Amino acid sequence: MAEQAAQSLEGWFCLHLFWKIDWAKWRRVPQDERQECLDEFKALARTAGRGPVPGQG
């Protein structure tokens, strides 16, 4: 991940990422491809809460 979280005065780190979705384009993607994208995102979201992977980052 290229983004770096800024250190706060309390010493905690926080990074907020925001995305904008073009819903018209999303709806034009075939249903099976949309489902594949959602499945990949859900897998990424599950691993994101686990913290850093040793030896990476």
Score class of each variant (00 low, 15 high):
M1I: 07
M1F: 10
A2Q: 08
A2P: 06
A2R: 09
E3N: 09
Q4W: 06
Q4G: 02
Q4P: 06
A5G: 14
A5R: 13
A5I: 06
A6G: 02
A6T: 05
A6F: 01
Q7S: 12
S8L: 14
S8P: 13
S8V: 06
S8W: 10
S8D: 11
L9R: 12
L9S: 10
E10W: 13
E10I: 13
G11H: 09
G11V: 09
G11F: 06
G11N: 08
W12G: 14
W12E: 15
W12T: 15
W12V: 15
F13Q: 15
F13I: 10
F13V: 12
F13T: 14
C14V: 10
C14Y: 13
C14H: 15
C14A: 13
L15F: 04
H16D: 11
H16N: 11
H16W: 08
L17W: 01
F18Q: 15
W19F: 03
W19N: 03
K20I: 14
K20L: 08
K20N: 12
K20M: 07
K20R: 14
I21K: 10
I21A: 05
I21F: 10
I21L: 13
D22A: 00
W23S: 12
W23M: 13
W23Q: 12
A24H: 11
A24K: 14
K25M: 08
K25R: 12
W26L: 10
W26F: 11
W26H: 07
W26M: 07
R27K: 11
R27Y: 05
R27M: 06
R27S: 04
R28H: 11
R28C: 09
R28Q: 13
R28S: 12
R28E: 14
V29R: 06
V29A: 01
V29Y: 02
P30W: 00
P30H: 00
Q31Y: 14
Q31C: 08
D32C: 00
D32F: 00
E33T: 05
E33M: 05
E33A: 02
R34N: 04
Q35A: 04
Q35C: 04
Q35H: 09
E36G: 01
E36M: 07
E36R: 08
C37P: 02
C37H: 07
L38D: 07
L38T: 07
L38S: 06
L38I: 09
D39K: 05
E40D: 11
E40L: 07
F41R: 02
F41T: 02
K42S: 03
K42H: 06
K42Q: 09
A43V: 00
A43K: 01
L44S: 04
L44H: 09
A45H: 01
R46M: 04
R46V: 02
R46K: 07
R46S: 01
T47P: 00
T47S: 07
T47N: 09
T47I: 13
T47Q: 12
A48S: 08
A48F: 07
A48C: 05
A48L: 13
G49D: 03
G49C: 02
G49Y: 03
R50T: 15
R50N: 11
R50Q: 14
R50C: 11
R50I: 12
G51W: 02
G51I: 07
P52M: 06
P52F: 09
V53Q: 02
P54M: 05
P54T: 08
P54E: 11
P54D: 05
P54S: 03
Q56D: 10
Q56I: 10
Q56G: 02
G57H: 15
G57K: 13
